[in-house]
């Protein structure tokens, strides 16, 4: 088995007295699509915040490619090759779709402090942005302000921005939340297509999505991972059914 690209070791997080994450161990293998599921309030989003650097864990280690990253700033973690999307759409609403993607692309090209180039003439950035625009299938909306896109288009844009930095690991926080059936189907195919070659960790409530998309699933309940395994294993795990689905079906103590 390959060494995990992202690995959480006994991670804890408390807010004042509330102990949200209680010792999570989790491995993300290279190239796998790993879903994190769990009931509301289980701490899934908090887990993402801890990994992506929005919060620092109270205790424990987060290893990215074998190096500890816990407590680093978001921009530092992003530079290492980890990108995330947000549960609530998080874009630049008054800028055009193209501009949104270009801003995401520019970072990788090292243009953060460049004052002496006209951006339209930086070929690599323009080309990369155009191809990204194509990959997220938003060519037709190129010059529309991002705030005027439909909800699912905004989610596509969000995923596109996450991909712009060619990350090794992508975290997607409920990419399908609030979508219709067709939109969900469309987005699943988009995610499958786009995340080829990188490791994906995804939080999602829609079980159809989770079981169809993921190689492995981890179940988070009250800040603890109670099970990790392939969709089949999880489907048949009685603790999961008990805790997550509220069923008392098995008698395996």
């Amino acid at each position: 088995m390959n060494a995990p690209v992202l690995s959480l070791r006994n991670v804890h997080k408390s807010f004042d007295k509330a102990h949200i994450i209680r010792g999570v161990d989790l491995d993300l293998l290279p190239g796998e699509r790993h879903a994190v599921i769990g009931p509301n309030g289980a701490g899934k989003s908090t887990l993402f915040h801890l990994i992506s650097g929005q919060f620092a864990p109270s205790k424990g280690e987060i290893l990215f490619d074998g190096h500890p990253i816990q407590g680093q700033t978001p921009q530092k973690i992003n530079h290492l090759g980890l990108a995330r999307s947000f549960q609530i759409t998080n874009i630049f609403p008054r800028l055009t779709v193209f501009e949104n993607l270009r801003i995401a692309v520019m970072q990788r090209e090292g243009l953060q402090y460049t004052l002496w180039k006209i951006i339209n003439r930086v070929r690599p950035v323009q080309e990369k942005t155009e191809s990204l625009l194509e990959r997220v299938r938003l060519e037709a909306r190129r010059d529309t302000p991002a705030g005027e896109l439909s909800y699912s288009e905004q989610r596509s844009l969000e995923i596109g921005m996450t991909l712009a930095s060619d990350p090794k690991v992508i975290l997607l926080d409920e990419p399908m939340a609030g979508m219709s059936k067709e939109e969900t189907h469309y987005t699943i195919s988009l995610i499958r297509e786009l995340t080829k070659g990188c490791s994906l960790m995804i939080v999602e409530h829609d079980m159809d999505v989770v079981f169809s998309i993921s190689d492995r699933i981890s179940v988070l309940v009250y800040g603890e991972v109670i099970a990790t395994g392939t969709p089949d294993v999880i489907r048949n795990d009685c603790r999961v059914r008990e805790a997550y689905l509220g069923e008392e079906v098995c008698a395996c103590a």
Binding site: T73, P74, Q75, N78, R84, N90, L95, I103, S165
Partner: peptide, 18 residues
């Protein structure tokens, strides 16, 4: 261009690595 992004959404900018 990033100046405009600063106005729009600094939070996102941070997670894009800026």
């Amino acid at each position: 261009r990033l100046t405009l992004a600063l106005r729009e959404n600094t939070h996102r900018l941070r997670f894009l690595g800026y």
